[in-house]
Design a protein around this nucleic acid. Structure first.
Length: 202
DNA sequence: AGGATGATCGTCT
DNA sequence: GACGATCATCCTC
């Protein structure tokens, strides 16, 4: 059985501007390699967190936790939430500006058995549906924070079927500020996106 | 030093 | 739909 081609994405493919990046990441493949093996999933849902955005972790200035958001674009920003889950983001905007894109859901495409072992989830549909779940399935934690996704051997982005993605937008999920802004991007019709059904019209 | 908060998840009804 | 777990982080005193 031949593995789908996982060609690493170069910097020329990804926009620096946050909303364009959130849209472009749809259809890209997130790849993770550890000594347990390789797992990968196609990105089907993202959220943009903009400069001067009250919902963005960078809004109140640089801190130890959010420093990666203020660094160069296209690095992994990983933080822990509710003491139980991690969230994986891609930093955006030029060095010195704090912004990023949250990856909210993947369509599993490689290493499903390993994902199942890590998640103890029953169906394929739930393996990577949600920001905390996908981090668990990919063994992403705070130690991944700051990784340069263009060069790192164990965490990177690959080309997927980006041209075929039909993108939709909705308000972001779970935020308590700037709740009306439509900064969540998802693939129309995908069964792998998270969130309540009313936010996911086909 | 102590309290409030949170870009979530799993479980229960 | 509701709720509790659980703790790093940040803010106030």
């Amino acid at each position: 059985m031949t593995r789908p081609s996982l060609k690493r994405i170069g910097s020329e493919v990804l926009p620096v501007e946050t909303r364009a990046l959130a849209r472009t990441l749809l259809g890209c493949v997130l790849v993770r390699e550890t000594n347990e093996g390789l797992v990968a999933g196609r990105i089907v849902e993202t959220e943009a967190y903009l400069p001067n955005d009250p919902a963005c972790h960078a809004y109140r200035g640089r801190s130890r936790r959010n420093a990666t958001l203020f660094g160069p674009p296209h690095r992994a920003y990983v933080y822990q939430i509710y003491g139980t889950s991690f969230c994986f983001n891609v930093s955006s905007e030029i060095d010195g500006e704090g912004a990023g894109v949250l990856i909210r859901a993947l369509e599993p495409i490689e290493g499903l058995d390993l994902m199942r072992r890590r998640r103890a989830a029953r169906g394929v549909r739930d393996l990577c549906r949600g920001p905390g779940r996908l981090c668990r399935a990919l063994a992403i934690d705070r130690s991944c924070d700051g990784i340069d996704l263009f060069v790192h051997p164990a965490l990177w982005l690959a080309d997927g079927a980006r041209k075929r993605v039909r993108a939709q937008r909705s308000p972001r999920i779970g935020v308590t500020r700037a709740t009306e802004r439509r900064l969540r991007y998802y693939e129309a019709g995908s069964p792998f996106v998270s969130g309540p059904a009313r936010l996911n019209p086909p």
